[in-house]
Design a protein around this nucleic acid. Sequence first.
DNA 1: TGTCCGTATTATAAGTAATAATACAGTTGA
DNA 2: TCAACTGTATTATTACTTATAATACGGACA
Lengths: 128, 128
Amino acid sequence: MFQLDLRESKPLYEQIKEKMKELIISAVLKPDERIPSVRELAQTLTINPNTIQKAYKELENEGFIYSVRAKGNFVAPLEQKAIRPRRDELRKELEKIVAELSYLHEPEEQLISTIQAIYQEKEGKKDD
Amino acid sequence: MFQLDLRESKPLYEQIKEKMKELIISAVLKPDERIPSVRELAQTLTINPNTIQKAYKELENEGFIYSVRAKGNFVAPLEQKAIRPRRDELRKELEKIVAELSYLHEPEEQLISTIQAIYQEKEGKKDD
DNA sequence: TGTCCGTATTATAAGTAATAATACAGTTGA
DNA sequence: TCAACTGTATTATTACTTATAATACGGACA
């Protein structure tokens, strides 16, 4: 499914969260699709189950997955997410990054075409 | 100069780094301008000098400031910065954020006009 | 020469991250 | 029915990070 970087300074559970988010956002994992169980993923990545549990719990709090007792964890459909606050958060982050990029003389056109490319790719995978 | 949020989970030295970066990026602090000394800022913010020192040291490593023994810390001119790797880093972050925003159905036009606004504001303060 | 600067070191306390070992309860299929 | 799988919870331990504290050294400069 993905690999972790043990040399990375970022906590393992954060890395797991990130990778899982990427798979959900990029629609590799579809809504209501089952993701690996806590124990299963722990074994695959050869890390402790509690670390997976922590990552999954936070992903659930953030609305990316939901868990069903004795069945597993599943990708949350978009409607279930608390979209508003997360979007506000992301906009702020975006503004910071763009401010720094402009400070570093990154051309404005470059950023715009990056955005257009990402949105265009999205067009190809409309299943949500 | 700025204030810290002690309730915030983010480490104090990270908060200091962020705020200082913002001031540099927004050109409130100009190249070669002196910033508060380690002890002075520590007193202002009523935190430990070592915490400021850590923040300043990292800012120096990232090329935002330079320090001169017995004189103080100063805003680094852009030329001194290792621009390339930092820009690559920022582009990657930007892509992640835009991907998530598009997943959350943020309109593409919204993002583009945000970028345009930031670059336009930059035009007003051309002193670098 | 006293005062302010950056820098360095060592110690301590509190919080976080990761592992480990268990335990409980619900689901499911053989 | 029950074994095997799920999520969930708890407690303990270790290592690392964060923040504070108390000093100390050496350069700059009025």
